[in-house]
Design a protein around this nucleic acid. Structure first.
Lengths: 146, 146
DNA sequence: CAAATTCCTAGTAAATAGATAGGATATAGA
DNA sequence: TCTATATCCTATCTATTTACTAGGAATTTG
């Protein structure tokens, strides 16, 4: 199976939520967790990675919370996912060409290696082309949909 | 992280191996396991799925083994992976639009759902465009590479 | 000072993946 | 017909990863 874990998905949700409340100052993690019915403690670990990746800024203390570091139009989904989940790699590495592997005899050419590289590149390309702003609904702008 | 499991990868290896020995009659799983240094018992479970998906045919008894059901040019990597790993879905489903989900309030529009659908479709499209024959090296044909 | 909040670390539970074991069934060839 | 070689089937176990919880220290507002 090929799937994103909750880490990647929840992280995107956090970032979308922050985009939606961008004008309200620091947003507490508790309010995000409540809105999406997720565990605050769990999100804590994820947003900690987002902070280290410099995607959000934190404000400590009462009335504190988190704020996007950049405009939603300047943050890609790829950045978000990679920041909490390491690289987006369909397989692990053994005898490495970058991050690809197989267990076949090293003498013979690895026939499937390129395949997984292509899948990885394809997914990366896609998520890197989608910006946070693309995911935020703009209720004022419904008319421009067609 | 986003990765294919060994199920998908080993299954592709099995199918590539069968392609390479296509002219030798039924190929035993033991010989495949030996060539790639993998556990025969484990591959057994995988090839069982490949058989149910009608991608390979089995010949029981001594001198038995497995044979591709179709020409390598007629079998896609997508079929192989899906047959052993279910659907290639980046996320699981809760309030379902096909196979996508989020845990947000069902009243509000799910902003990220389309994202995961697009990733899934993109990966499926890619692996469905790659045929087994594309992965098999043709040592006689080196000259035609350019 | 009290309440709200981020920050940090350790630990646990649940799910999945990966692998193993044992034996039943089938077939080729001696 | 017997033996060796295979597939076939199912149950089980182990390791890894994912998901989540707990507890408390540090920081800031009012």
């Amino acid at each position: 199976m090929l799937k994103f874990t909750t880490r990647g998905r929840y992280s995107v949700q956090i970032m979308v939520d922050l985009s939606q409340h961008i004008s309200e100052g620091p947003i507490s993690l508790k309010s995000i967790a409540d809105r999406h019915n997720l565990s605050e403690s769990y999100l804590e670990q994820l947003i900690s990675e987002l902070r280290k990746a410099d995607l959000v800024r934190s404000v400590r203390g009462a009335q504190g919370g988190y704020v996007l570091q950049r405009d939603p139009g300047q943050i890609t989904v790829g950045e978000i996912i990679r920041s909490v989940a390491g690289s987006i790699a369909p397989v692990d590495c053994e005898h490495q060409t970058e991050t690809m592997s197989c267990r076949c005899d090293p003498d013979e050419q690895c026939l499937t290696r390129d395949l997984w590289v292509r899948v990885r590149d394809s997914v990366n390309e896609l998520v890197d082309s989608i910006y946070l702003s693309d995911l935020v609904k703009q209720p004022m702008d419904r008319s421009s949909l067609n």
